[in-house]
Each structure stands twice: as structure tokens, then as C-alpha cells.
């Protein structure tokens, strides 16, 4: 256990030393917030059901952070650790193999959470973000969404032969998820056809869930989203468990 926590701590430091990873999780969401916040402000708007642009976007940006840590960070870091032989080196020690993977989950979850907290704090301080929900359901929804996308990240790292192909696969999935889910551009502005297509994009369900919980929906109102995300989690874990290779 000592080794596991030390590994998680070192991995956090390493994460923060990598400008790209830290940028997408911690900085980019805030840049979007300030960009759209400075254009539209956060005045209540009937278009958003009487809420402001920032009120609606913030939970969507949380979904964006989850998408990027899962589809990009996890997939790329695990597959490049395998390709370079980092996983091999760990395997030659008494550290349990599962501890290596668990530390990846812990580290990426904490970084996702940190990115989320920074974003919410900035939105609150600068634009007076309104929150009508309850903390616990939002936290649960956020956690389930994270784990589901992390499982997909592990799945990508498992099926990709090289770090490069994991990167390409991650990008190919990330961009449609980012733009069609409403994580960056509010769905309310989408034409009907695009909204319909969005139903088939996993991140859409994270956006819907978090936006709903943010304005106080009970979890029971989002059974579809919860089911989709739980399904993603199960499939991701099952496929990774079967296909994951250490070298």
C-alpha cells in the first residue's frame, strides 16, 4: 500500500510537469469560460430557461474535462508507459500490477476533480455562477462519468498496439464527443439533426446528466444517462481486462 500511494503521488507530480496534459485539464476549460463569459456574460436568458450562459456552460465544461482525461490522458499515458517499457520495469518489483493501473485511475480522477474545482471557482468568482442542485448527486454523477470515460481510455490503450495509435484513436473519438455533445457549444444552438446525432455520442449523456443535476434534478430523472454511463464502464472494464497487455 505504501508503494501504491507513493506511486500515485509521484504520478501527480509528473502529470503537472507535462504542459499538454495539465493544459487540457486545468487551463483550457477556464480559457473557454473566459472567452464565452466575456462575450455573453451570465445574464439570465429565456433561451437557457432563465439561466445565464455561464450557468449552463460550466457543467458542460466539466464534461469536457472528463472527456479529455479519459479519452486522451489515460489512453496516451498508459499506452506510452507500455510502449516505453515503464510497465515492464514496475512488473519486475513486488508492486502488484493492479496497483499500477489503480494509481492511474486515482491520479487522473484527482486531476479531473482539480480541473473541475478550479473551473467552478473561477466561474463563481468572475461570473457569479448559480448552483441550484445538491452537492452529493453532482459529485456522484461526476464520479461515475469520470470512471466510465477512464474505462474507455483503458480500452483504447488495450486495443491500440502503439502509443501513437492510441493517441490517434483518442483524438478521433475526442473531437466529435467534444463538439457534438454540447460540451463546448450549447446544444440549444444546434439544429435538430445535430441534436439527434448527439444522442449517439457518449459525452452527450455526461453533459445532460451534469447539467440536469446542476439545476437540481433528482438522479431518478436521468436513468437513461446513468444506464448509458454504467454500460460504458462495464464494457470498458471487461474489454480492458481481456485485451490489456503489459508489453
Amino acid at each position: 500500500m505504501k508503494g501504491f500511494w507513493k506511486l500515485a503521488w509521484v504520478e501527480i507530480k509528473i502529470y503537472l510537469r507535462q504542459p499538454e496534459a495539465a493544459f487540457f485539464t486545468l487551463v483550457f476549460p477556464m480559457l473557454l469560460l473566459f472567452l464565452f463569459g466575456s462575450i455573453y456574460g451570465n445574464k439570465p436568458n429565456p433561451f437557457f430557461g432563465g439561466r445565464g450562459m455561464v450557468d449552463v456552460s460550466t457543467p458542460a465544461y466539466l464534461a469536457m474535462i472528463i472527456g479529455s482525461t479519459g479519452l486522451l490522458s489515460i489512453a496516451i499515458s498508459v499506452s506510452s508507459y507500455r510502449e516505453k517499457g515503464v510497465l515492464r520495469r514496475y512488473r519486475a518489483t513486488p508492486l502488484r500490477p493492479a496497483a499500477v493501473l489503480a494509481s492511474e485511475v486515482v491520479v487522473h480522477y484527482l486531476m479531473t476533480l482539480l480541473g473541475g474545482i478550479l473551473l467552478v471557482a473561477a466561474a463563481r468568482l468572475v461570473y457569479g455562477l448559480r448552483f441550484e442542485g445538491r452537492i452529493v448527486p453532482v459529485f456522484l454523477g461526476f464520479t461515475l462519468s469520470s470512471l466510465s470515460f477512464f474505462a474507455v481510455g483503458f480500452l483504447l490503450a488495450s486495443v491500440a498496439r502503439t502509443a501513437r495509435s492510441a493517441y490517434i484513436l483518442g483524438m478521433v473519438l475526442y473531437f466529435p464527443n467534444l463538439f457534438l455533445s454540447g460540451a463546448t457549444i450549447p446544444k440549444q444552438t444546434f439544429p435538430q439533426a445535430l441534436r439527434a446525432a448527439g444522442k449517439f455520442i457518449p459525452l452527450t449523456h455526461v453533459v445532460n446528466l451534469l447539467q440536469g443535476l446542476w439545476i437540481g434534478d433528482p438522479l431518478g430523472k436521468h436513468v437513461l444517462e446513468l444506464a448509458v454511463l454504467a454500460g460504458l464502464l462495464v464494457v470498458g472494464v471487461a474489454v480492458s481486462a481481456k485485451a490489456f497487455r503489459w508489453e
Binding site: G3, K6, R88, R89
Partner: peptide, 23 residues
């Protein structure tokens, strides 16, 4: 090992401290 690596951004002392904690 003939072929292995550590994470690019891991420092030398961190690697030793980390591996020591595994035993």
C-alpha cells in the same frame, strides 16, 4: 532489464524513493 524505461518526467531521486517503497 535489457529493455525498460521510467516516465520521462520522473526525477532520479523520485525513482529511487519510489522503488524503495515497493519493498
Amino acid at each position: 532489464l535489457q529493455q525498460s524505461a521510467l516516465p520521462d518526467d520522473m526525477k532520479v531521486w523520485e525513482a529511487l524513493d519510489l522503488f524503495a517503497s515497493y519493498y
